[in-house]
């Protein structure tokens, strides 16, 4: 009895939380965005951009993603639940695009346009992909690293993972650019810290211990870059140039303090905004390009407060 009553309570509470008018209105345009995560600041900035566009175009969005980026099957469950809600279009940032194809095909057959965001989907089902050109962005990071260390010396990479598209593209974009343009720079190692601050700290610590002459480290996402900063602080390793990726308060502070030379920022607000804008455009029958490049910037202590940069940084 107790359980029954409390369950009823939970359901009615859930109904209240659920902004019930939205659940009933069938005529409004509903666009669920299935992301790779929701707790990370990066994703919250994407969500903010998506909400901004939703307001502008008068559509309703929801934004969710699994607890961490390994939960491929949970993301597929989310996609299935989103499909049940009669969406007009779906925004999807695939953790493993091949695993999601049967459901995406189902959506496609039901005439629901799919907008890929952040990372591409290996399929022609999405009408477009709103994403950063991660290779080009990491290549810019390599140029900035070379400039900061004077075109010669040893560098290392702390990457977030070796399986995701962004992980591979950022690593290879950096390595390829160094190999092709800077023969005097040696990449001594590439290590992976799962984008986790603590793990990346340990990884960077080990790199610093093993390579006392290291001139610079590139951290390929927020967690990796902060890990590198932590390690350099802990080891008081002066003279190591750090180039980061993305933003977040810890990283922007490190850039302001000068411990991090600079970082590449994507435009997460733009990714969210462009995803919803593209969905609305697709619903209106407009032609869309295959890829919508949402852009990237390099920021340092000098330009961090420029309006153009400040607008795409998140805390």
């Amino acid at each position: 009895m107790l359980l029954r009553r409390t369950l009823m309570g939970v359901i009615s509470a859930a109904a209240l939380v659920a902004t019930s008018p939205a659940a009933f209105a069938q005529d409004e345009i509903y666009i669920p965005l299935i992301s790779k995560g929701f707790q990370h600041q990066f994703w919250q900035a994407v969500q903010a951009g998506a909400e901004q566009a939703a307001e502008e175009f008068g559509v309703r969005i929801t934004f969710e993603g699994p607890d961490n980026e390994t939960m491929v099957d949970r993301q597929i469950d989310m996609l299935a639940a989103a499909l049940a809600n009669n969406p007009a279009a779906i925004g999807f940032a695939a953790l493993d695009s091949r695993a999601a194809i049967p459901l995406l095909r189902q959506a496609h057959e039901a005439g629901i346009p799919i907008i890929a965001f952040d990372s591409g989907v290996d399929s022609d089902i999405p009408v477009t992909t709103a994403t950063t050109d991660n290779r080009a962005a990491a290549s810019l990071a390599a140029d900035m690293m070379a400039e900061a260390i004077g075109g010669t010396g040893q560098v290392a990479v702390v990457a977030h993972d070796q399986t995701s598209r962004t992980g591979i593209d950022r690593r290879d974009g950096f390595l390829d650019r160094i190999a092709e343009a800077y023969p005097d720079i040696e990449v001594v190692t590439v290590q992976y810290g799962a984008g986790d601050q603590l793990q990346s700290t340990e990884v960077a610590n080990a790199i610093l211990i093993a390579n006392p002459d290291l001139a610079g480290i590139f951290g390929t996402n927020e967690g990796s870059a902060i890990g590198v900063v932590n390690a350099v602080r802990e080891r008081a390793a002066t003279g190591v140039v750090i180039i980061g990726f993305d933003s977040g308060l810890a990283q922007t502070t490190a850039v302001r303090e000068g411990i991090m030379t600079g970082a590449i920022t994507q435009n997460p607000v733009g990714i969210g905004y462009e995803t919803v804008r593209a969905a609305v455009a697709a619903l209106n029958g407009e032609e869309l390009p295959e890829i919508i490049d949402t852009g990237f910037f390099y920021y340092t202590a000098e330009n961090i407060d420029d309006p153009e940069i400040a607008a795409v940084l998140y805390e």
Partner: peptide, 14 residues
């Protein structure tokens, strides 16, 4: 529970 709360668009944290 998970699916139902999702279909109701309850915020994920909740």
């Amino acid at each position: 529970l998970t699916n139902g709360l999702r279909v109701l668009s309850v915020a994920q944290e909740w």
